[in-house]
Write a protein that binds this DNA or RNA. Structure first.
Lengths: 215, 215
DNA sequence: GTCTATATGAAGATAGAC
DNA sequence: GTCTATCTTCATATAGAC
């Protein structure tokens, strides 16, 4: 507790360089925490996974919690980048929304997407700041992107939102897209939804949105 | 592992009678597990909370996992009953859906509703059967109820679902209602959404659904 | 069934040599 | 910085008396 750093790492920059021990530790910690969560993961597992000694772990991270924070923050950054990299294919709004929904679901339903969601939700009370970081990195980002697109669509009279703000309509759409398949995947770890089910869900959601607000 | 019971309790019926030690243990375990999750909860905490000795705990439950299963299963039963008890106020479909959405959100966003969701999601990989039980007890039940109601509404031409089945439309509605406020609450443990935000969300969701499918 | 006391093992973290 | 070896604490689970 003696370092004035943000309590993430002791030696800086450390994490950045692949090949360094610090990087190896972080990478191993990522795998272990995403697999077992915070409580059930042990520093022994991480040390073994990284093939380093205990003291190497503690040379770079003050304790288990600091290591966890570093892992989740890095994961949120990656997540946000992936979301931001989604390309809006130009054309009819319905086509654009369909493609967007597919891509967003691919990210959210990926093994690491689900794992990140799991640990964020379960460790929310213990790490409130991390949970908010995740919300800002994921749902907030994609919602803002969709809101922008809806604004364009409104300008060319493709949508008519009534008294809804762009941001509200975007939120409705994104939540409709994510909610059911995500909950199903989280509660059925053995049998993830098949391609056809996801495709049908996307179709239902997009057509619902277009029936409500399309012109 | 020697009992042919469902591995829930050793002495039966046990849990049923309030005042019995078994009940006290289960009640204490509920509080601890819902607060700390599975991994971070300890049998010491439960024993202390119940004000009994260690051996009393193990006299009624084979081990920590069995106790956890008993707690979550009981919680799912309670949850399902609460959901099933929701009354559909008769009248205009829009009014009915609004009331339903409010009540459902009250349940889902309650402290125990959020806590149950947290432990189900985080322990899904370790207890897949429990996670599925939860899905059947919550989302499945409410969706079926809404689907029934939509069928009635369709009979009196209040809705026109196009090529959607009643069950699909119900799923869309329920997921729209729950998704955003639940995720926000889970990722902002300190500041739960205020009444006005929830009320606005309900309004947005119901009007979206009615614009899409109301007649 | 219930208690006190304890066995057993593991987890987080550190000491000290190199 | 990195290792081996170890300290300390604490958690799950059991033994044995009542």
């Amino acid at each position: 507790m003696a370092n004035t750093n943000t309590a993430r790492s002791i030696s800086s920059p450390a994490e950045g360089e692949p090949g360094s021990k610090a990087y190896t530790v972080l990478h191993a910690a990522r795998k272990i925490f995403l697999t077992y969560g915070f409580g059930s993961a042990t520093t022994d597992m991480i040390q073994r996974e990284a093939a380093v000694s205990k003291s190497t772990v503690y040379a770079h991270y003050a304790n288990k919690e600091a290591l966890f924070v570093a892992v989740v923050e890095a994961e949120c950054r990656t997540f946000a980048e992936t979301v931001r990299a989604i390309k809006f294919c130009p054309g009819q709004l319905k086509v654009t929304l369909t493609a967007l929904a597919r891509t967003y679901l691919e990210i959210v339903l990926s093994p690491s997407g689900l794992a990140l969601h799991r640990i964020i939700v379960s460790e929310g009370p213990r790490f409130p700041a991390l949970a908010q970081t995740f919300y800002m990195a994921g749902p907030s980002v994609i919602t803002a992107m969709v809101a922008d697109h809806l604004a364009s669509a409104a300008a060319s009279s493709e949508v008519e939102l009534g008294d809804l703000k762009f941001e509200e309509a975007a939120r409705v759409f994104i939540n409709m897209v994510r909610s059911e398949p995500q909950l199903y995947s989280l509660t059925h770890p053995d049998s993830s939804p098949v391609k056809e089910q996801i495709e049908r869900w996307v179709e239902v959601v997009v057509s619902t949105f277009m029936r409500a607000y399309g012109r």
